[in-house]
């Protein structure tokens, strides 16, 4: 367990984690930012949010996915982006589990808003979600790792050469 945590905390591992998470979130956001109405409808099927909040949620969440995804890929505000991504994943996990427990048979609306194209809600999606939460944790705690722009910006500000430990 300790060895796995140390491995995930390695700067190179964090580079991989943030690129993978970032790309997943960018891809997930593309269809939804373009079709907020369809995404709002998909969200309504979960019966988790009060009706009045659904459209605002459906408008803002895909943009959070896109902005946080891009931030992770380039490594700017990596820890903040990982906080947002982790928070979203927790919200998604709650929505998934609650709809499974209540026996609601729906498409998840995760990557596509087109009815019938989406993945059916099930525990495999919860597992995928939890794996991504695990991937976000080292990024929240330790930052973006190798090649993160964060470190270069910080290094430039403090006048020291680049490197993730240089500014701390």
């Amino acid at each position: 367990m300790r060895a796995a945590a140390a491995l995930l905390a390695h700067p190179h591992a964090r580079l991989v984690l943030r690129i993978v998470l970032g790309v997943v979130f960018i891809v997930a956001s593309l269809d939804k930012t373009r079709h907020p109405l369809e995404f709002a409808r998909a969200v309504s099927y979960y019966h988790v949010l009060p009706d009045e909040t659904i459209n605002v949620f459906a408008l803002v969440v895909p943009w959070v996915e896109l902005v946080a995804g891009v931030a992770l890929v380039v490594g700017v505000a990596s820890r903040g982006a990982a906080v947002l991504v982790g928070g979203l994943l927790v919200v998604f996990a709650i929505a998934l589990v609650s709809s499974i427990v209540r026996g609601i048979d729906i498409s998840c609306g995760c990557f596509s808003t087109t009815p019938g194209e989406g993945h059916k809600v099930g525990y495999d999606l919860v597992v995928r979600d939890i794996l991504m939460i695990v991937a976000a944790v080292p990024l929240v705690l330790r930052g973006g790792g190798t090649l993160a722009l964060d470190d270069r910006l910080r290094a430039r500000r403090s006048g020291a050469p680049g490197g993730e430990r240089s500014a701390s």
């Binding site: 803002v60 943009w63 959070v64 896109l66 902005v67 946080a68 931030a71 505000a77 820890r79 903040g80 982006a81 990982a82 906080v83 947002l84 928070g87 929240v140």
Partner: peptide, 13 residues
Amino acid sequence: RAIGEGALLLALS
């Protein structure tokens, strides 16, 4: 600071 950064990204989104 991570939470602060997150709030900033959220506002931008």
